[in-house]
């Protein structure tokens, strides 16, 4: 059981790594959100796999459902912001978002 958990966590790490690569290198705002979504998938998988390995699958499921609901809210807000930005700049390129310098 324990080794299966570690194997699953290995796949979680791959998913999150892919998502981080996307966030770091892509320039399209929607693509960045897709990267975020992949990271979220990895984390949901981590939660359910943890529950499965520890015989807590019912609790893990309810956690996973909550995470999915949170995800929908975040993605909807982000897409609303992107559509609004698109009205201003007529582009999805995040390199054009340089008016503010953090």
């Amino acid at each position: 059981m324990n080794n299966l958990w570690i194997l699953n966590m290995g796949f979680v790490a791959l998913l999150i790594g892919t998502g981080i690569y996307c966030l770091l290198t892509m320039k399209n705002a929607v693509k960045l959100l897709i990267g975020l979504e992949i990271i979220a998938k990895g984390v949901t998988l981590a939660l359910v796999a943890s529950g499965y390995a520890r015989n807590n699958i019912l609790a893990a499921q309810s956690l996973a459902i909550t995470v999915i609901v949170v995800d929908v809210a975040v993605i909807a807000t982000a897409l609303a912001i992107i559509i609004n930005i698109n009205r201003h700049t007529k582009s999805l390129d995040v390199r054009k978002l340089t008016k503010l310098k953090g």
Partner: peptide, 23 residues
Amino acid sequence: FKYLMLSAVASAAILLSIAVIFG
């Protein structure tokens, strides 16, 4: 938008840590 991106990554890090502890 920038705030959302960074903050969402932060939330993912927090949740991943919670998942490991749960496991």
